[in-house]
Amino acid sequence: MQIQVRLFATYREIVGEGQLAWTLRDGTTVRQLLEAVLAEYPRLLGHEKGMLLAVNHEVVRPDVVLREGDEVALLPPVSGGRR
């Protein structure tokens, strides 16, 4: 099956693209996809701290099983800032 991977901010800069088409076996989880992305782009290693994973614009747990056409986003920690 085909899914889209979206990358933002630091992750987009490291990978050099904001969007990747990715082919997966049926039954692949978000965690397995992340492992595959990290294997393909090892420079992302060490930047996973605080990463959130979203599927179709909703933050999900890593054990969620992906489906055809899903949009998976790797989200670095957001801006934060002092109050």
Partner: peptide, 13 residues
């Protein structure tokens, strides 16, 4: 405003 800073996917440089 606190929530915007924590959970909305907006990054600043």
């Amino acid at each position: 405003m606190d929530e915007v800073k924590q959970i909305v996917p907006i990054w600043k440089t």
